[in-house]
């Protein structure tokens, strides 16, 4: 049994090229100490994780499982411009922050954690990858608590950021930092279960057997589109699509976190996969 002890997030559509919203006032309030030489990706990670664990007691050995599709893209752009355009050696903190593990380092430092600290990526499915790893460690008893976060940053200008990701010119973009605190053997209001299916029909049968009034199904943004359309026919009016709102690469994490925070009845199912590698279903319910 894996319980969701806490959940919270930051999700902000970015619709103007003027500037990105400042996070510094929130960070001053939430962080134990002011961190210097951190970039926006680290700021987003600090903000989301601190909101999530507010009021909770963490074990020092709690694992951090941070996922992202694009990683610290703003800092990577600055570093590459220093290097290629300006023909300069990158500044040390810019270079160090190109590594995804820097964000997890600052989250651990802020929360006083010394356990496993991972940075994982899987394009359009980073949530699935980090949750798989966190659940594996919780189930094996490697950790008793897992702090799971998905962080995505926007780099201005927006048109270039869309171009970089091959997104349509009309796609609204968002920044996000979505976090769950999971604990093994913990009876909580929300439980998280992982199911794997080789065949889509088997997954559908499972859903029919588990479905209750008020349940909701989310198709992850990396999911095979024909399968999503098939599920839409099977569960009309019950499906939310990651493409319908402001987008970032780990948007399925926004659905999961939002549902975990709220007190709405019913279950949330998040499905991902394709017909070759099979199907993964996260069931968030009572």
């Amino acid at each position: 049994m894996i319980g969701i002890v806490a959940a919270n997030h930051y999700l902000q559509p970015i619709e103007s090229d003027a500037s990105l919203p400042s996070l510094e006032a929130d960070l001053r309030e939430l962080c134990r100490e002011p961190f210097r030489r951190i970039d926006r990706f680290i700021q987003l990670a600090l903000l989301g994780s601190a909101r999530c664990i507010a009021g909770q007691t963490l074990r020092p050995e709690c694992g951090i499982y941070l996922g992202s599709g694009l990683g610290p893209i703003g800092n990577n752009i600055v570093t590459q411009q220093q290097l290629i355009r300006d023909r300069e050696i990158p500044k040390p903190f810019n270079f160090i922050n190109t590594l995804g593990s820097s964000a997890g380092f600052y989250v651990a430092k802020n929360l006083g954690l010394s356990g496993q600290n991972l940075f994982i990526s899987r394009r359009r499915a980073s949530m699935e990858a980090v949750l798989n790893l966190a659940l594996a460690d919780l189930l094996r008893g490697v950790v008793e608590q897992a702090l799971v976060g998905l962080v995505e940053e926007v780099a201005l200008p927006l048109a270039v950021h869309r171009q970089r990701q091959d997104l349509p010119a009309t796609q609204v973009l968002a920044e996000g930092s979505h976090w769950l605190l999971l604990q093994s053997g913990q009876q909580t209001a929300r439980q998280l279960r992982l199911h794997r299916f080789d065949e889509l029909s088997t997954l559908e049968n499972f859903l029919f057997g588990s479905w209750m009034q008020g349940d909701c199904l989310c198709c992850a943004s990396g999911m095979e589109r024909s399968a999503e359309q098939r599920l839409q026919r099977q569960f009309p009016g019950c499906i939310v699509s990651a493409w319908d709102c402001a987008f970032h690469d780990s948007l399925d994490a926004a659905w999961l976190t939002e549902f975990a925070i709220g007190d709405r009845p019913g279950q949330l199912f998040v499905v991902n996969g394709n017909s070759m590698r099979g199907w993964v279903l996260f069931q968030l319910g009572a």
């Binding site: 694009l70 994982i120 394709n274």
Partner: peptide, 30 residues
């Protein structure tokens, strides 16, 4: 600046295409 060119997924994509692999991918950047 910073065209993705496959980004974190480049290595997996090359292997998958070359070897016909279509399993789960876990890409670590620590």
């Amino acid at each position: 600046p910073m065209p993705l060119c496959g980004g974190y997924q480049l290595i997996a994509a090359i292997i998958q295409q070359a070897l016909g692999i279509d399993g789960d991918v876990y890409t670590y950047n620590t």
